[in-house]
């Protein structure tokens, strides 16, 4: 049984499951959290923004396994349960960083743009988002790395991924299985982290080394 689980075919399948889970949930989280973060950073939502920021800060202390478990109680077993849980959990760092990044843009810069007659939408796309991008990308990086880790737990709700190897390895006490699962998931997390770190650093060099 261990040999069958360790076939290239099976590892390929689990890799695909793992990556797809992370990819779908992360992209969905970016697509929801970034616009939401932009929205609550607008001046007319200033009060809502501060409240949401506090809620997010508390929500972020909730462990990922708890979110996964809660979604299990609603959606039962399956791939969707895992994707929804990952999505919701990775919303938080992206939302928080988008909000922090945009509200952290120097007031003077934004006011200069307003004063020169830039329409609000262009201020957002040309000034605020580029300047906030290192912080936003840092949030995405955190989210993706956490997602790779949480996705190993998806095996408990029957959504596959590298967690299958680890949990089966523990259950039937087969070291090769266990190690393969551990090492592959760790590698995936480290690779994602490094790729996004490079992207983040590029933005920082380009934009943020500005100290007046």
């Amino acid at each position: 049984m261990a040999a069958r689980l360790l076939s290239y075919e099976n590892i390929g399948l689990l890799t695909k499951q793992h990556i797809i889970m992370v990819l779908i949930s992360s992209i969905a989280a970016i697509l929801t959290a970034v616009p939401l973060g932009i929205l609550i950073s607008r001046e007319r939502f200033a009060r809502v923004g501060a409240i949401i920021e506090n809620i997010v800060n508390v929500a972020q202390t909730v462990p990922s396994i708890a979110i996964l478990a809660l979604f299990f109680t609603i959606l039962g077993l399956g791939f969707n349960t895992a994707v929804f849980a990952l999505w919701l959990y990775s919303l938080l760092p992206i939302l928080r960083n988008t909000y922090a990044g945009i509200t952290g843009v120097s007031k003077g810069v934004v006011e200069a743009a307003q004063g020169m007659g830039m329409p609000p939408l262009r201020i957002l796309t040309l000034i605020e988002l580029p300047l906030a991008s290192p912080v936003i990308i840092a949030g995405i990086r955190t989210a993706v790395v956490v997602n790779v880790g949480t996705a190993t737990l998806a095996t408990f709700v029957g959504a596959g991924g590298y967690g299958d190897l680890i949990v089966t390895g523990i259950a039937i006490q087969r070291l090769p299985l266990l190690l393969t699962g551990c090492i592959l998931s760790a590698l995936l997390a480290i690779i994602c982290d490094h790729i996004l770190a490079v992207v983040e650093k590029n933005r920082v060099v380009e934009y943020q080394e500005v100290k007046y």
Binding site: G108, G117, V210
Partner: peptide, 21 residues
Amino acid sequence: NPVEMRQNIGYVIQEIGLFPH
């Protein structure tokens, strides 16, 4: 229209107003 009007009024503030990127 505020946007149009501001485009026709030059505006200089302390140096923080330059777009750093």
